[in-house]
């Protein structure tokens, strides 16, 4: 299968670069898969997993906390606000973050806090979703 260049960078560092067959990401409008020869696109990403399928079907999962995705026919760039390799994620940490955000929401004081807490819950949930995807994949093998 034809491959394309993919690179994932976050503000802090280079996360991933290489030849891939397919990229699956979650944009604000929904999940989408990208193959070589895709129409040029510019998408805003939601917090969530970005899956990269390398040549031969080997798959890697990354967690991004929002950002942009640019598609050119021969390359895909992910500009993540912050990105982590999914296997570096910690389920306990993510759950704690979500619970904290929920309790902050319960005792909210103002609209700004509310927005902030909602965003945090979304981010933590997205982390957990990334992890559960990773776990499912391991279960299958």
């Amino acid at each position: 299968m034809a491959t394309m260049q993919c690179s994932i960078v976050s503000a802090e560092r280079n996360i991933f670069a290489g030849e891939v067959e397919r990229v699956v990401a979650v944009s604000v409008m929904g999940e989408l898969g990208i193959l070589r020869g895709h129409e040029p696109s510019l998408l805003e990403l939601k917090p969530g997993p970005v899956r990269v399928i390398r040549e031969g079907g080997e798959e890697e999962i990354f967690y991004v906390s929002g950002g942009f995705l640019e598609v050119q026919p021969h390359e895909v760039s992910v500009l993540a606000d912050s990105a982590e390799r999914a296997r570096d994620l910690d389920a306990g940490e993510a759950e704690k973050a979500r619970d904290e955000a929920r309790s902050a929401l319960a005792g909210r004081s103002g609209e700004l806090d509310h927005q902030h807490a909602l965003a945090e819950i979304e981010a933590a949930t997205a982390r957990l979703r990334t992890l559960s995807q990773l776990r499912n994949r391991k279960g299958q093998k």
Binding site: S27, V28, M29, E39, P40, S41, L42, L43, E44
Partner: peptide, 8 residues
């Protein structure tokens, strides 16, 4: 002569 598909 080309343009992106933008989302949103």
């Amino acid at each position: 002569g080309w343009d992106y598909i933008y989302e949103p």
